[in-house]
Amino acid sequence: MPKIEFLYFADCPSHDRALALLRQALTEEGLNPAAVTIIEIKTEAEAEEYQFYGSPTIRVNGLDIAPLPPDISEPGLSCRGYQKADGRISPLPPLELMVQALRKANAVQ
């Protein structure tokens, strides 16, 4: 089972939907949907400590599921956008990205 981390900043409203999507991805891949370490980032110091560049952030075995957006250069209490397959930006990470990251982690184990 890969190590799954879900980091969020409560002021960014997409975290609930993102976590539900992550659990869906885990279920679809035959993994335990409850096996997610959830970390709430509350301060700039915590953002620095966790190298948190925006909410939500999902890491599989320590690797971010997506490259950082080009306009984010330092850790902080920000919301984060994800590029969808059609090129649009959304505050919600696409399910496909999560599934890809889980499959990649499983493949190397």
Partner: peptide, 8 residues
């Protein structure tokens, strides 16, 4: 400019 909700 920067907020992904705005971009969306």
């Amino acid at each position: 400019n920067h907020c992904p909700y705005v971009v969306a």
